[in-house]
Each structure stands twice: as C-alpha cells, then as structure tokens.
Design a binder for these strands. Structure first.
Lengths: 193, 193
DNA sequence: ACATTATCTGAACACACGTTCAATTCAAGC
DNA sequence: GCTTGAATTGAACGTGTGTTCAGATAATGT
C-alpha cells in the first residue's frame, strides 16, 4: 500500500531531514537508528534510502547546508570595525538562537563524520572564523581594538557567543534583544583599546 | 585461563576507566561498544562487569568524578574580586587543558545520561558556575566590575574559557602561560567597570 | 481505460549490541 | 599439597543495526 494520498517526494524528503535533525539533536547521531527516523516520518526504514544514500550523508548534508547558510546569511557591512563587530555579534546570536538544533549538531557530531566530510565542514567553519578575525585585525590596525592575538580573540568571541545556546530557553527571563545587548557589551569591552 | 600473572583487580579496574575515557572522548559514548573497551583493556567483554554494573554507570562515574575533582581542586582565595576572578580564570584554563578528554565527555555526553544521573551532573556543574557568579557579584558590589547580568556573565566567561580546549594542541604556537594571560586580559576588560 | 512510473512496504541479510553465567584458571592461605 | 576464591573466559541470550530489493500500490500521462 504505497503512494497514499498526498505523500510525495516533495513532502517526504524534507520530513526525513526534519526528523533526522530533531532526533540527532536530541539523542545524538550514533544513538539514533534509521528505523527511529522512519517511524518519525511515518514510513518504513527502506523508504529513507530514496532520499539519502546512507545515514552518514544525512548527517553531513545537515551540517554542510547549515554552515553554507550561515556564511550566506551575513556579509561584512560598511562602517567602522566596531560597527562591523557589533553587527557580527548580534547576527551570530540571532542566527544561532533561531536554529538551536542545527547549531548543536554542527558542534557535537563532528567526530561522527568520515574524514573527507569532516574536512569540508572544518573548512566552512574556518571561513566563518576568518571573517571575524578580519574584522578584528582591521580594528586593531585602526587602533580601535587592542588584542594580544586576533586569532584567539576570534575563537574566544565565537565560543562565548555560541554559549548562549546552552542556556537560552524560549520565554525566559530575557528577550533576545537584551541578550544581544549584554553579550555585545562584554565583547566590546573585551576587545577595546 | 584466568588470572594471568600480574593481572589483578587493582590493575584492570583503572584500565577499564582509562580505556572508556579515551574511547568515549574519541568516538562518543553511543558509538563505543563494551567489546571495544574490553579489547583496549586486553580482556573479554564479560570481565568488564566485574568493574562496572553497566555501560551507563561507566560514563556517569567518569563525569561525576571529574566534576567533583574540579570542585575540590579550587577554593576561592583571599583577596579582591579582581584577584579572585584572575585566579578562577587561570585555574579553569589550566585544569581544563590538563584533562581534555574528561572535559570533552562532561560536555558532550550529557544527553546520554539517564535522567537521575543527569540531575546529579547538572547540580555539580551549577555549583561551579555559582562559585564564579559569587565572585562577579562581590566585584560588582565593590564597583570593581560593571555587569548587566552576573549570571549571564558567569556563563559567558566559562564558555569562553572552556573554548580553549577546542583549539589547543600540545606544542602549539602559544605556551599555556601565554594563553592564560591572553584570556585573562579579555575577561578582565569584559567585566571592568 | 490503460500503461507507466514514482513511491513505499515488508522481509531478509549479515553482523553487532549489552548483558549474563557456568566453567575454568591460577595465586594465595593453611 | 589442598582448598579456597578472586579473576577471567567464552558462549549464549534476545534484540537491534544499516542497508538492499523484489514486489505492491496508486497517482499521472496519454
């Protein structure tokens, strides 16, 4: 009894991705079986292989698309290095709070990637870090920032900002705008000349 | 052929923990089998159950002991809030760089803990965060620090400091003392009045 | 109305999982 | 030298794994 009403590839495909995203984020890639994903979608396990060649690719595609989307979602704006850094910080927080599951997976499941897939993801992440580091270097050249090490500062800032995802809960004590402001305030002071 | 020369419980017990630590850190709890751990120890899988009631407890014991050790390894020293914060930051980096595998597991494998075990670990982590927050509050009361939110600041600082573990490699560009100094510099400025 | 084809099922494959336990081995105590 | 008991093996238990595929189904194009 295949091809029930309204169940087409256009619908099932995204459903598979969504289910995998949700389950991987909650239980971890290794702890989730293809049968669990299939059950979440409402389909038998075999049907998943119409939408992904294997489980590994399912994970890899989620991570790659996430990072490519992150890179595409923001360009360094015109303005001073301070303005650029503020825009970066606010966008980082906003973007990450909007996609907690993707962010979580992209951080936690790196070791479950096969080497060649890992290299791709690593390169994309590096691009993102480099973008921040360029802003920091420019600000340092303009004497707006005082940093002992721009690479470390970039990594430290990203770690700090991404940390928001570990505690933020919808409807909590603070609005997103407040959080952006608080974190931007700390970053601004940390790099200040 | 049991009880080979020199193989006693005093030796095998720690070996099991060490092997589990190493393998969990490298591949993740869910991706490591009891047979792999046993092979690393040089024993059959059944023998592991002389040293742990089950796989879950093996993970939980590693995490609990790590956090209890972390809490025991440092007390808030006498001195100004600034001095206390510096001591905290330097100790945090030092302690975490010395135990990358335990730190990694304690962060990454939280979701593989059964609820009651999770609660224990969560409580220990909270204690550690609270200790930092107390320093920040004291410094704020003394007008040494200017913080919009001491709880967020504590979490942000810990996230930033722990981030060191994601990039630090033995024998790299920077010595540990340099790293401590760089991070402390950023923290100091970030919370400064 | 019929043929086509995208979509899905359900069973099977070979293997791995965590855990248990009777049987075995060997160092130590008497 | 004999008994005891801690340490370990090796096989077994039932269940689950990722993946494949022949066959069934139903919407679509003609």
């Amino acid at each position: 009894m295949a091809r029930k009403q309204g169940s087409h590839a256009d619908i099932t495909g995204p459903k598979v991705r969504d289910a995998a995203l949700r389950l991987f984020a909650r239980h971890g890639f290794a702890a989730v079986s293809m049968r669990q994903i299939a059950a979440e979608v409402g389909v038998q396990a075999g049907a998943l292989y119409l939408y992904t060649p294997d489980k590994q690719t399912l994970l890899f595609d989620l991570m790659r698309d996430h990072l490519e989307d992150l890179l595409a979602s923001w360009q360094v704006p015109e303005g001073s290095a301070v303005d650029q850094l503020e825009a970066f910080c606010r966008h980082h927080i906003r973007y990450h709070l909007d996609r907690p599951e993707l962010v979580f997976i992209a951080y936690m499941e790196l070791r479950n990637l096969e080497p060649e897939n890992f290299a791709v993801i690593e390169a994309l992440r590096r691009q993102y870090e480099d973008r921040l580091e360029m802003i920091l270097r420019a600000g340092q050249a303009a004497r707006s920032f005082d940093l002992p090490d721009s690479k470390l500062a970039a990594l430290a800032i990203i770690a700090m900002l991404t940390g928001v995802n570990t505690w933020y809960r919808e409807g909590g004590r603070l609005a997103r705008g407040d959080i952006e402001a608080i974190y931007w305030d700390m970053v601004r002071k940390a790099v200040a000349a």
